[in-house]
Design a protein around this nucleic acid. Structure first.
Length: 899
RNA sequence: GGGGAAUUAGCUCAUUUGGCUAGAGCGCUACGCUGGCAGCGUAGAGGUAACGAGUUCGACUCUCGUAUUCUCCA
């Protein structure tokens, strides 16, 4: 059975049990501060469990893209080393929201595994929750009784709270779970050791394949458990594992989920996949990581240096490290695998093939910059090693030790290795690898790993201290399940506080408030959250921001009202909201214009809309030219003048897509979507934001700036409405000011040109005049040289206080004189420049070598005290400066007396 | 969000306690030589040392701020 068939049978099976099959949510999570990536199948249904949202269907099944890079059983550094950990994986799952419970869930999972997949019943074991005295929870009898119907009682094992009680987080929905384990060992081994002793014992061949969670409690912050009114089923079966079991392999990487990629790597690198070698690990790392990287980028998350983007970057770099270190491949490799993956998942996750050129381009660029970074780190490391080796060689020479004596041992301090890692991104294991390869055959290099760890710990605690956010439990005020958002139509309403909580971050206290109904738009889809007021009795509270936590609209305030139960009047800051709406509608006009002018490959990659401006990031592979920008602005302004009515409709997603709406990857939508139409032939977009009534309200549109944000992604910043007016006025004012200072010429650009030309000419002239003066000065100085006795002959001494305008001229004079003075000379020139003393001393090589004079020494020992300053330079030429310019003749005399 | 670092010629990078006319390689221009894979020689152009303040007699160098980029941690 192929992996594609296995996946399809899962979905078909649950479809036959009246489940709605839904597509995978994006792997990148938005609107949930506690999560960067989807890490379990249930993430997209969290709101149903929390009661923030009513489910559309009571039974759902799907396959969900998940990403895990850290956690109790998962560490990025382990992936690829063994044969079953992954960063990205698919989670098959079926759900019941207040519908069926333990009986059906257990019966169906048994049926699917044994009758559809035909797994051997003798190899299966199940676990159930044994109960926990501390929590006051009894054994899960219900599950036990259901299992007894299909499996022998001695194959039903008891599990403790750690293994068989599932919790979403520190707080929230939770409940007992039952797991199905499979024993994949050979018959011979199975006869020797009973499988049930190996369940939950980290045996690589006795593994859990399916977890059925029965959600029936809510965990509060004080640790207590509250029974939930509606009970849910949440299951998860790791797809890669399941395929491995069904295809009867010992490694996930030997299944057809991965063999295609591994073959492609073989072809590209010309290496052989041998599972047990270092190279084998590299193969697995690459095969695993490329999936994670490709799908997250396809879901809209670009690599970056913070948050989710940074996780992607780390995964990508780990893969680069492995192929460049172990597969001897030093060019970008990963991007070449994107087409292979895209093809493989064409029918399951079509978002990748739709963007495969974009994705591989982004990856390629990342690979190139990191290979570059590695080069830099390598250079820094080599410099250090060179230094250590030189030190040893010198020491050996001094002690007359031959190089063929036993090896020296050198430990590179942890601080340096950490710096390499922390600042240059040069990974510890790579440093270790290079050192172990003996860069110099007579020295053993080692790393002070404890020192490295200590530095690392310091860094971690610094970061932790800065990021502490303390959130208290919600305090319920009024019973109310779902917040109604009325802000599309009204900007002020009467409402009441449903619940609130206190939040502490960086020593600052604040409150988060949930209202029964609210006109406040919560930050989403790039549009900023509303600000405004809550007014009650005789009190007024400022809302400083509005954000979403999953489906919950949260208002941020600095304080609480005296009476939280009172009726509140919620009022949005109208002018700010209005101007924000103008920019949001302008964004839609811009998006459509971009596709018209640049092509339909343009897709939104990010957006920020506030009252001051709009920022729009989109995929495009070249700089947008001035002509293109002008064309874009022209179209947008035409659409504004047409004063098109903005039509907003709610419909189901398929209908919207049929209508031609741009479906945006990376956005999470329910089945009912909001469609914003600005002329059905011009712009149709799925959008939850707020908009103007008709385009005429925008007034005018102007692009301020175009730039690049990443490989293949451009950014346009633009203004509309009042912001555009202000921008234009500012620009005109600037031109006006320039015009005035130029005495109102007809053509400013020509006036400026001629001004610049004139200025350059004058500069040149002045320079040549000064140069001529210097030559005259030089000639006269040459005539004033006096002899002094040196060796068997005579040297020439020139010492004079001269009149120059610039300290550099003293130096220049010296160099000019040098060419005319021959072999043995000494020159000292001094000048008073703007009341300050400047001195230059030049000595011939002969004076330095044979008489032991050095210009900087002379300055420090004799001159600085006279001029109250300091100075230095090279042995033959040094300069000095000081505050006291009254005794310059003394300076010259002082130098003369030394000769 | 917190730390570390970088920014010097078109490109890649040097420049040690603050004082060297800020250099090299590649590229570019001109001339000359040359049947060769990055051919050779000579000469030359090219710099606001990211930006802005400050300290100093003097700042590429030290301090502070801003911007951009890299990097680690959360």
């Amino acid at each position: 059975m192929t992996s594609a068939e296995i996946r399809q049978q899962f979905l078909d099976f649950f479809k036959s049990k009246q489940h709605q099959i839904v597509p995978s949510a994006p792997i990148v999570v938005k609107n949930d501060p506690t999560l960067l990536f989807t890490n379990a199948g249930m993430n997209q249904f969290k709101d149903y469990f929390l009661g923030n949202k009513e489910p559309q269907y009571k039974r759902i099944a799907d396959t969900q893209k998940c990403l895990r890079v850290s956690g109790k059983h998962n560490d990025l550094e382990e992936v690829g080393v063994d044969t079953y950990h992954h960063t990205m994986f698919e989670m098959l799952g079926n759900w019941s929201f207040g519908d069926y419970f333990k009986k059906e869930a257990i019966a169906w999972s048994w049926e699917l595994l044994t009758e559809v997949y035909k797994l051997d019943r003798d190899k299966l074991y199940v676990t159930i929750f044994e109960g926990d005295d501390k929590e006051g929870l009894p054994r899960d009898e219900e599950s036990f009784n259901e299992w007894k119907k299909v499996i022998a009682a001695d194959r039903i094992l008891l599990g403790n709270k750690k293994d068989n009680f599932w919790e979403m987080g520190d707080t929230g929905p939770c409940g007992p779970c039952t797991e199905i384990h499979v024993d994949c060992r050979s018959d011979e081994e199975r006869n020797k050791v009973d499988g049930k002793t190996l369940v939950n014992n980290d045996h690589p061949q006795v593994i859990e394949i399916w977890n059925n969670v029965f959600i029936q409690f809510n965990r509060l912050k004080d640790g207590s458990l509250q029974p939930l009114p509606a009970r849910h089923v949440d299951t998860g079966m790791g797809f890669e594992r399941l395929v491995r079991v069904i295809q009867n392999k010992t490694s996930n990487y030997d299944t057809d989920v991965f063999t295609g990629t591994i073959d492609a790597i073989k072809t590209i690198t010309n290496q052989v996949y041998q599972p047990l070698t270092k190279e084998g690990i590299a193969f697995r790392v690459i095969a695993d990581h490329i999936r994670a990287i490709s799908f997250t980028i396809a879901d809209g998350q670009l690599p970056s240096n913070t948050g989710a983007g940074y996780v992607i970057r780390r995964i990508l770099r780990r893969a680069v490290r492995y192929y460049s270190s172990y597969l001897y491949y030093k060019q970008p490799l990963l991007h070449q695998l994107v087409p292979v993956i895209a093809k493989q998942f064409e029918n399951v996750f079509p978002e990748l093939i739709a963007q495969k050129d974009f994705v591989s381009r982004v990856i390629r660029e990342e690979e190139e910059t990191f290979l570059n970074t590695l080069d830099k780190g390598l250079k820094k490391l080599n410099d250090r090693l060179r230094y250590e080796i030189d030190k040893i060689l010198e020491w050996r020479k001094a002690n007359s030790i031959h190089t063929d004596t036993p090896n020296s041992k050198v430990i590179i301090d942890g601080k340096f290795v950490f710096e390499l890692f922390d600042t240059y991104g040069f990974p510890l294991d790579l440093t270790r690898l290079i050192l172990s390869e003996k860069p110099y055959s007579h020295v053993d290099f080692g790393i002070d790993e404890a020192g490295f760890e200590a530095e690392m710990q310091q860094q971690k605690s610094r970061s932790k201290a800065a990021a502490v956010v303390d959130t208290e439990d919600w305090v319920n005020v009024h019973e109310h399940s779902i917040t109604e958002f009325v802000g599309y139509d009204s900007l002020e309403i009467k409402s009441k506080i449903v619940k609130y909580r206190k939040v502490k971050a960086k020593g600052k206290e604040g409150y988060q408030i949930v209202l029964s109904a609210t006109p406040f738009y919560a930050e989403s889809g790039g549009q900023v959250g509303d600000t405004g007021q809550l007014i009650m009795n005789n009190e007024q509270l400022t809302i400083i921001d509005t954000k979403k936590e999953n489906n919950l609209i949260i208002h941020f305030t600095e304080s609480l009202p005296d009476d939280v139960t009172a009726e509140v009047f919620a009022k949005v800051d109208i002018s700010k909201r209005k101007q924000t709406e103008i920019h949001h509608s302008a964004t839609h006009l811009l998006h459509a214009a971009l596709r018209k002018v640049l092509g339909t490959h343009v897709a939104q990659k990010g957006s920020l809309v506030n009252d001051e401006q709009l920022r729009f990031d989109f995929s495009h592979f070249a700089k947008v030219t001035d002509e293109e920008m002008a064309a874009i602005e022209k179209i947008v302004n035409e659409k504004i003048r047409e004063n098109i009515r903005v039509v907003i409709k709610e419909m189901n997603k398929d209908e919207a897509v049929k209508l031609g709406a741009m479906a945006l990857f990376g956005e999470k939508y329910g089945d009912i979507v909001r469609v914003v139409i600005i002329d059905p032939n011009y712009s149709i977009e799925l959008c939850g934001g707020t908009h103007v009534g008709s385009t005429g309200e925008l007034g005018f549109f102007k692009i301020k700036h175009e730039s690049a944000v990443a490989a293949g992604v451009r950014r346009i910043e633009a203004v509309s409405g009042i912001a555009a007016e202000t921008f234009i006025i500012e620009q005109l004012n600037t031109i006006h000011t320039i015009r005035e200072s130029l005495k109102n010429p007809k053509e400013i650009d020509k006036a400026i040109d001629s001004l610049i030309t004139e200025n350059n000419e004058l500069k040149r002239k002045l320079e040549s005049v000064e140069a001529k003066q210097l030559i005259i000065l030089k000639e006269s100085l040459l005539g004033e040289h006096v002899p002094f006795p040196f060796a068997n002959t005579q040297g020439k001494f020139i010492g004079k206080v001269v009149d120059v305008s610039n300290a550099d001229h003293l130096k220049k004079l010296c160099f000019d004189l040098k060419n005319d003075l021959g072999n043995d000379y000494a020159v000292v020139l001094a000048a008073n420049i703007n009341g300050k003393a400047n001195v230059a001393i030049m000595l011939s090589d002969s004076l330095v070598n044979e008489k032991g004079l050095e210009a900087p020494k002379i300055i420090k020992e004799y001159i600085t005290t006279i001029i109250k300053g300091g100075g230095g330079g090279q042995k033959t030429l040094a300069t000095a400066g000081g505050q006291d310019a009254n005794n310059l003749q003394q300076v010259i005399d002082a130098v003369k007396s030394l000769l």
